[in-house]
Amino acid sequence: MKFQKDKIILDKIVNNLDRFALDFVKILEKKADYVLVSGYVSILFGRSRISEDIDMFIPRMEKTEFSALHNSLLKDFWCLNGDDAEELFDLLMKRHSIRYARKGKVIPNIEVKFACKPSDFESLSKKIRVEIGKKALFVSPIELQIAYKERILKSEKDRDDALHLREVFKDNISKKKIKYYEELVMKHD
């Protein structure tokens, strides 16, 4: 793992969950910005557990833009919540998530939400590029993930995810930033 100013370079052997994320964003990023958050961020950086889903924020967009994105995703994926782009858009606008999986499968799936809270926008605007070979994924700032898991989610699994990130990034994270994000999420989440 190499840390550079604005990116992290991972020399990992890609697993099936990584492959799923890479294949999905390869299509999505042609139409929209995105950031990966929560448990998959810990797994990407080595956490020894699996997850049936990957959480993602995308910026709010117009209905026509979403329809174009949804239609392009349907090439390799299907939406578990339904086929109708208008109905799916309405779900997103009501702050619900929608899930996509590979055709013919249910798990793993990617849970997509429109960014709506200050911490969601912070994840998007301060996202970190993670390069894996010639490919890349964008993830939320590590300090924000630690703060969110320790202060908001607080389950045993989330505390372990946060502990893993604290240990792996112990020489590369800012305690000042964690404190800042703790205050942000405690105020708005």
């Binding site: 020399d11 990992k12 080595g46 604290r166």
Partner: peptide, 19 residues
């Protein structure tokens, strides 16, 4: 323990086990 292993070993080594 595992996080320390991830931090101190080459990515290929820990990711093989994770895979």
């Amino acid at each position: 323990y595992w996080a320390k292993f991830v931090r101190e070993h080459p990515d290929k080594e820990w990711s093989k086990q994770q895979k």
